[in-house]
Design a protein around this nucleic acid. Structure first.
Lengths: 190, 190
DNA sequence: AAAAAAAATTAAGCTGGTTTAAGAAATGTT
DNA sequence: AACATTTCTTAAACCAGCTTAATTTTTTTT
């Protein structure tokens, strides 16, 4: 049905066939073209999104009217504005496809019912959130210890798949650099 | 028994008296003086720590031999090197008391058994990790949109309790500033 | 209370990375 | 194939925040 979704969950918890069938009740699949929005600034983030196929970015508009990208999501990553989703508050972010994508959405009330009905899913989300925290802690450490140049080199060697799929200026934005500076760094490396 | 601990959990899930009694099986209370260590670089982070009373910091030693603080924890906050704790890998952090503290520790295997025995605790940790992610996402946004000066002003007005309990140079380190620059900012504000 | 250690301040010079402004190259669309 | 749009590059001037180094103030220990 949604092979990436189910196999991702099965990496962390056991799922019998009945549970898989029940899961489908809670999921809304979405087919989106390039540059379509799942969330816009001012809206409440009503769903948590799983990338079955494709690629998403999350960004906000800063005081100089730049699009500041704070997150990407490729296949089998989750994307959500946690603050807005948890407390039903208006988001300050946009969530947009970078490519044609297949997304699974679980809205607030489905999420709640699903976790109550299926304890494996409560466990699954505890585990992946714990892993997301580990990742956030590591990224944070990198930001303390690396210069922007090192941060860029580290990112582009650690995650070369992004350079294939995401324009350079978006990577620059995500890393907190100007596109001009990234251009300079690339020239330097050749 | 551990009033802050129990009341914190009860903010998020229901606990009956039996469960509270069972919980105690998994917890090791620690009384620590000022500047004692719960974790040192190279060790595996074997426990997740709850601050019942007092104050902790987490830091690593950077390439210039500075202590780079990445986290504080006051009463009813959790502290852990997620990466080390989850994958049993040597930590690159130190966790140390800033003041005399009372800490509750749950080690890796207790944590696992506790979550298996007490589904409320699985739920509790899913919720607090989700909230921690929301907080991390927010902090991250601040780092993109604020100058270091704004970041400092924002932190010191939003969390004045830290200025009371934590030396200024530690706050500077946590915010990624030099103590000299913080000094300059304070002078400017008066 | 004195000595030692830790923390905070001051000030001058410097640098990593930004800003501004054009132009060139690549990609998407008709 | 031509046009329009998006993305990338180049270069010079600039500045927020760091480095270095010395002094002062505060806190801790004896």
């Amino acid at each position: 049905m949604y092979p990436n979704f189910i196999s991702h969950i099965r990496k962390y918890v056991e799922l019998d066939d009945h549970t898989v069938a029940r899961l489908n009740q809670y999921i809304s699949p979405l087919k989106l073209k390039r540059k379509e929005f799942l969330l816009k600034e001012g809206q409440i983030c009503q769903s948590i999104y799983f990338v079955e196929k494709g690629c998403l970015r999350m960004y906000f508009i800063d005081d100089k009217l730049n699009e500041q990208i704070t997150q990407f999501a490729l296949e089998h990553w989750w994307m959500v504005d946690h603050f807005s989703f948890q407390d039903n508050k208006p988001s300050s972010y946009f969530i947009q496809t970078i490519e044609k994508s297949e997304i699974l959405a679980i809205n607030t009330s489905s999420f709640e019912s699903m976790l109550r009905e299926l304890p494996q899913m409560e466990r699954y989300f505890r585990i992946i959130m714990q892993r997301a925290l580990a990742a956030a802690q590591l990224r944070n450490k990198y930001m303390y210890e690396m210069s922007k140049e090192e941060f860029y080199q580290h990112f582009s060697t650690s995650f070369p798949e992004f350079a294939q799929r995401v324009p350079q200026y978006m990577i620059a934005s995500y890393l907190g650099l100007t596109p001009q500076y990234v251009s300079e760094l690339r020239k330097k490396k050749l």
